[in-house]
Structures are given as structure tokens and as C-alpha cells.
Design a binder for these strands. Structure first.
Lengths: 219, 219
DNA sequence: TATATTTGTTAGATTAATCTAACAAATTTC
DNA sequence: GAAATTTGTTAGATTAATCTAACAAATATA
């Protein structure tokens, strides 16, 4: 069974993988906040355990087993976040830190019960998909708000960043998942967008924000 | 903040302390399943952190800070057990392993919410007291069933052992906390007792079992 | 009390996860 | 393509938590 540290490496590799599934040692090290030599030696040890494929000076790739193990850790994380929000009254900006710890608990029944109590959810409080028990992840098709055009009506479906700061920014503007937004205009100069939605006549969102909001186009 | 290993030592010291608060290195080592040298060196390091008082060849004692820290870990453990039983549908024989892991989560709000959702319980599913947020533990006055006499009616209030095996033994006989038992007889030869309670006319309990059942005498 | 047994300590090794310093390979830039 | 920069590796050290072997102190027993 993977240690807490190993699980964190698997998760990072899963999340950082490019379309070919590759991750550089430097990205990995940076993402985990460790030095490159540390990431390097851990990758060697993950290879011995069969979780990754690795050759000197080449990027790292998860094996199918590694990918599944990673997805199952992510499943525990996202189920936990959903449980904290839906069953324990946490705000979506508060759950990440706690879930980072609970995801390493080894107790299948604990997470199965969460899953049941939540009615087998497929997305977490930030709109990210929850992998199933086999570690499969459904593909969600949303587009980034910054790519949409004035006149379109869209529904907020997920976020590409879930930092507490960003989530509080959204809270302050009553921007929650499911909200329908009408795009009033897009500023050619700074790429900011003006949108309107229930209770908010004309809210201006910077490019940085629009790039982090994922939406489904309604019309 | 204490590491997981340190928290486990604090808990063990708390639970093993004799009336003078003393614990021998050998007991400590045995209880944690580590070698004596390991326990010895950990105790030295706990002393450096101010959690215990220790002198070579003398028994170990928790400091007031160590005692409080230990009680707060036990609080997390017992709140978790209660939460698993009352809110997540676990059996009382299943909760220990999971609680052993969750007790090391550092997330005050998580445990405060459990506490609220449970209505601020004072005992856990096995009848053990839950320390308060200051680490204080209420004294419960129960007597051991084996010390009771035929003719007495008692109420099952707690257990001195919560191994899954023992809890399943009790499940199989519908013996749960709160049950009222009438003591029909006590066998002088092997100290087994015959009791009757709802649905059970005459159930014989071995001395070993009677020593693990704590009761309140009703009449 | 002398001896045997139990309990506790010291010394030294191991493993996992981390670090820094130094160097080497790969990539980018001029 | 040579030089500079970035990226990756090796070597060696550190810390926490563990171990075994050997020895020493305390306690129990004869």
C-alpha cells in the first residue's frame, strides 16, 4: 500500500500529466514543494513499486496501476470535500485542507458510506469529477468563460482553481456552481468581461477570473 | 504539534498510567508494539518537548500539558467513534480501526462539527467518557459486573475492553449499552454469572466476560 | 545476601523522506 | 555551433522512528 508521501506523488503526477501522460521532475518537485533531488529519488522508488515508468533525463509517466491508484486517492479527496460541504456544513473554501488529510485514511467502508450518504455524487463541490471505484473518471465538457462571446448565456459548472482566496472572491459575488450568467460585454483591452446574473446587474470579471471559471453554454 | 507517533505515545501513557500517573517503559513498549529501546528514546524526546517527566530507570509521568494533549487525542478518537456509529451507520465493533486513523487529523472544525451534530455527547459508543475541549474527563462511577451479587438489577453502562471479538460476542447476545440485567445466580466454582434481560431468559456469562462489563446498580 | 531474572539503557544500524552542494545532460539563445 | 541557461542526477548529510545486540541496573528468588 502506498504511504502518504507516495500517494501525494501519485496525485501530483496524475494532475500534472500532459496529454501524453508525461510529467517533468521539475514540475513534480515544484508542485509538491520539494527539491528536485527529492522528487528524483522518490520517482525511482515509485518505479520499483511499479507505479511509474521512468528513464534518466526523460519525463515520468504513471503506469495503469499508478493511474488507478492516483484516481482512487483523488476519489477519496473529492468524496470527502463533498461530504464536508453537504453533510457537515463546511464552506467550499474550507474543505481542501481537511480533505488533504482525510484522503490518506485507509478505510474503504468509511468512503463507501460517504458515497452512499451523498447519493453517489459524480462531481465535487468545485465541479471536478469524482472518479468511480475503479478509478475511472468521466469526461466533462465545459469551456472556459474567457473563450465565450458577448450575448451568450452560460451556466457556471466548475473551476480550474480552488484556492480559498478565489473561492472567497466568488462567495463575495454570490457566484456558485449552477449559476446562469449572461455575457454582456468583453473588453478588448484587458479581456475582462461584464456579466449579469440573479441579484447582480453588471459584474465585471478580470481575465484572470474568467480563465478559472468553466461553463456550459446554454444559448 | 505532536506527530502521529508522538500522539500515540501520549495516548498510551494516558491510558496506562497507574493512580500515581506512572508508566513503566516495558508496559509502554508492549502496549505500542515497539521495542523497549524505541520506547526509551521516544520518551526522552517527549521529555525534551515538555510532554513527560522522566528520569533514568524511573517510570514515566505525563506533564499537565502532556495529559491535556493526550486527552484531546482521545477526545478526537471517541467523537469519531460516536460519529461513525450515530451518523454513518457503523457497528460499534467496526469503529476502532478507523478512529485510530482519524484521531490524528489536525482540523479543529471537523471535530467541532462532529460534536455539534452529535449534540455534544459525553460518552462514546462503548460507554467511555469523551474528554471536553479543555481535555477534562468526567469521572463515571460504574462497578464491574463480576463484583455484583445475585438478586441485583443492573444497567450495562460501559465496557473495559472494546475488541471487535468481544463486541461481536455481545452483539450475538443482544447485549448493548443501557440494557437492564437481572443477576439470577453466580457460580462459586468458575465465577460465571447467569443473568436475564429482554429476550433472554437465562444467559450464562463467563468470569472473563463479567469482568469486562461495567454496570450501574439499579436495585 | 548472592544469584537469577526482569527491566531499562547504550550503541550502532536501517528505512523513508527530506535537504544542499556539486556536477552533468539537455535545451535554448546568440 | 558554441555558450549560456535550465533541467536533472549523484553524493552525502539529516531527522524521525524503528530495530537488534550487548550491557547495566533494579528487583525477585533461593
Amino acid at each position: 500500500m502506498a504511504s502518504t508521501a507516495e500517494e501525494n506523488y501519485l496525485k501530483a503526477l496524475f494532475n500534472l500529466a500532459n496529454p501524453e501522460g508525461e510529467v517533468n521532475i521539475s514540475e513534480l518537485a515544484q508542485s509538491l514543494g520539494v527539491s528536485m533531488p527529492t522528487a528524483n529519488s522518490m520517482v525511482k522508488s515509485l518505479q520499483k513499486s511499479g507505479w511509474v515508468v521512468y528513464e534518466k533525463y526523460k519525463p515520468v509517466t504513471l503506469t495503469p496501476e499508478g493511474r488507478k491508484a492516483a484516481a482512487l486517492v483523488i476519489r477519496k479527496h473529492r468524496l470527502t470535500e463533498m461530504f464536508l460541504v453537504k453533510k457537515m456544513g463546511f464552506g467550499w473554501e474550507e474543505v481542501h485542507e481537511v480533505a488533504e488529510q482525510i484522503e490518506h485514511i485507509h478505510a474503504p467502508k468509511f468512503f463507501e458510506r460517504m458515497d452512499e450518504m451523498l447519493g453517489f455524487p459524480t462531481i465535487d463541490p468545485h465541479g471536478s469529477p469524482i472518479p468511480d471505484q475503479q478509478g475511472r473518471i468521466q469526461a466533462l465538457s465545459h469551456v472556459v468563460l474567457s473563450s465565450c462571446l458577448p450575448g451568450q448565456v452560460v451556466q457556471l459548472t466548475a473551476l480550474t482553481n480552488s484556492s480559498a482566496d478565489f473561492l472567497e472572491f466568488l462567495n463575495n459575488r454570490q457566484l456558485s456552481l449552477g449559476k446562469e450568467l449572461e455575457i454582456l460585454s468583453k473588453e478588448p483591452y484587458d479581456h475582462s468581461m461584464t456579466v449579469s446574473y440573479t441579484g447582480h446587474h453588471s459584474e465585471s470579471l478580470s481575465e484572470k477570473v474568467c480563465e478559472r471559471l468553466l461553463v456550459r453554454v446554454i444559448s
